[in-house]
Simulated scan of single mutants.
Amino acid sequence: MTCQLMDCIGTPLPNFSQNLGFVLIGLFSIGALASSTFASIILINVVKLDYFYSHQTSIGAIILVTAGCLFMFVSLLGYCGLKKMTIWMIKAYATLLFLIITLQLAGSICSFAFKEYFSTVVLAKMNAAAKNYFVHGVDNGDLRATVAWDEMQINYHCCGTSSYLDWSTLRPEMKGYPDSCKCKVNEKDCGDDGFYHEGCYTILRSFLTTMVNAAACFSLITAVIQFIWLNFFMNEAQGTEYIRIND
């Protein structure tokens, strides 16, 4: 039995498959939004600390944000395709969803690689910049390195790389700690001596690792479930008489 394409538009899938599709599209949207949010937080922090990073480190986060934004539009296409059972919409949704899954996997891999970069390159850059911190009376300071360190220590309530004691070895000419390490004794994260004690590398590694893991895991889990559901749905649709076109 055949029918004209326009006559078939609006014919519903079995309730279970159609309702499952609506629920999963909603869940995928939440997963994509969560992944994009965590990736955006990573980007914001990388921009704040651009002195210690290269632009390549943000590739994974950019891919995940892009994939999340694309999915918000693609999910609308998928919803309309399921609601009206328009064959071209469903095929377009399937194609674009496969592209998004690829982006999510690529972004997750790049994000995990970022953790390794942070553990080696960023730590080395922090130590190198600390050795060029400007000290009054010493001519070999670097203003950019000084500003970068001051902003980081103030914004993240930290001092030094691994701890505030690093300054005594990284910049012994200072004979103390930078003013940006100072804090009020009753302030959160402030030591009894009026200085932040925890190192900036330690804080940032913990914070960014958590964000990277969250963004990558949300993206990976969403991508895997999307792929499984995409195969199930296309097989279901092709095996029924609910979507029909002329022979």
Rank of each mutant, 00 (worst) to 15 (best):
T146Q: 11
V147Q: 08
V147S: 09
A148F: 06
A148N: 00
W149H: 04
W149M: 09
D150T: 03
M152C: 01
I154R: 14
N155V: 02
Y156H: 10
H157M: 12
H157D: 13
T161N: 12
S162E: 13
S163Y: 12
Y164N: 15
L165S: 10
W167G: 00
S168Q: 08
T169C: 08
T169Y: 13
T169I: 11
T169P: 04
L170C: 11
L170Q: 11
P172I: 01
E173C: 01
E173T: 09
K175N: 12
G176K: 04
Y177K: 12
Y177G: 00
P178D: 00
S180P: 07
S180G: 03
S180N: 04
C181Q: 00
C181S: 02
C181Y: 01
C183F: 01
K184L: 14
K184Y: 13
K184P: 07
V185W: 03
N186K: 12
N186A: 13
G191K: 05
G191T: 02
G191H: 02
G191N: 03
D192C: 15
G194S: 14
G194A: 10
F195R: 11
F195M: 11
Y196K: 06
H197A: 04
C200R: 05
C200G: 11
Y201N: 07
L204P: 01
S206V: 10
F207D: 11
L208P: 00
L208W: 03
L208G: 06
L208F: 10
T209P: 01
T210C: 04
T210D: 13
M211P: 10
M211T: 12
V212D: 06
V212Q: 00
N213C: 14
A214V: 13
A215T: 01
A216Y: 05
C217L: 13
S219Q: 02
S219N: 05
S219A: 13
S219I: 06
I221D: 07
T222F: 10
T222I: 05
A223G: 07
I225C: 12
